[in-house]
Amino acid sequence: MSDFSIFEYGLGILQALLIIVLSPLIVGIMRKIKAKSQKRIGAGICQPYYDIIKLLRKDEIVSDQSSWIFRVTPWINFVTTASAAFFIPVFLIYSPFGVVGDVLLVVGLFALGKFFMMLAGLDVASSFGGLGSIREMMMSVLVEPALFMTIFVIALFYDGTNISTIVSSANDTSILIVPGILFALIAFFIIMMAETGKLPFDNPSTHLELTMIHESVVLEYSGKNLALMEWSHAIKQMILFALFVDIFFPWNFVEQISLVGISIGILVFITKVSVLASFTAFIETLVAKWRLFRVSDLIAMAISSSMIGVIFFFL
């Protein structure tokens, strides 16, 4: 397992690059679908790319209250999230970097990014940043147990926390979903919505202080930094989507490495992720934002769902 050729490492890097490059596209698709389902026309699906490029070229303003933490955060955030992308299989059934780290490392990298993001929110001495940080903090505290329980369930059913192992054994099991995994799916979906700031938890499309979580943390950012923040958020979302489809819908991975196989694999992957993205977008148009303190109810649901998953495994 541990010996890969340079070529395979190249493929692995290609997988990671795919995630990083495609992530704004998914954001664009989701926005478009949301717009359509709300009877708006909406911007084109490539708009996020234009946004990022435009922001990268802009001058920026930094708060005079802030310290180096504030300036270093977008970089750390981007680097951790983008590095996490290296461990996710896209069209291959494995990632050659699977030896380096497992799903817990991915979680850890996300947490590192989030840690700095929360600090940056506190750094600017505005009440909005504090508000965002504290809510982000609360959310991550609550999501953590649910996340680990879900990982536990998945690790139990698919022999390990190594993502490549998980995906390949998921691919080997029958099409009929195992009941325990069904519960893990529910839990993972809820966690995904929470982690990516989707609607019952957070409403990223508003700048009203009552509703925002993620947005109020990045409120003070502009220019390059903002571009990096937004991009890394998109990558994180993409990674979670990719993990979701890898684990729960592990079909059509490339068996033989050939140009045709790989392109089919990529296409299938994009389709799967887009379908998931549209589904999430639909869910988002269907639900309203929940009161902050009711959010924990949903997360409790995720926890118990994965707990039942555990129970199912042991039977």
Partner: peptide
């Protein structure tokens, strides 16, 4: 409600 959900999950465990 959130504790109820968890408690129910516990009850499911107990039942098993």
């Amino acid at each position: 409600l959130r504790i109820s959900v968890i408690a129910s999950a516990l009850l499911v465990a107990m039942s098993y």
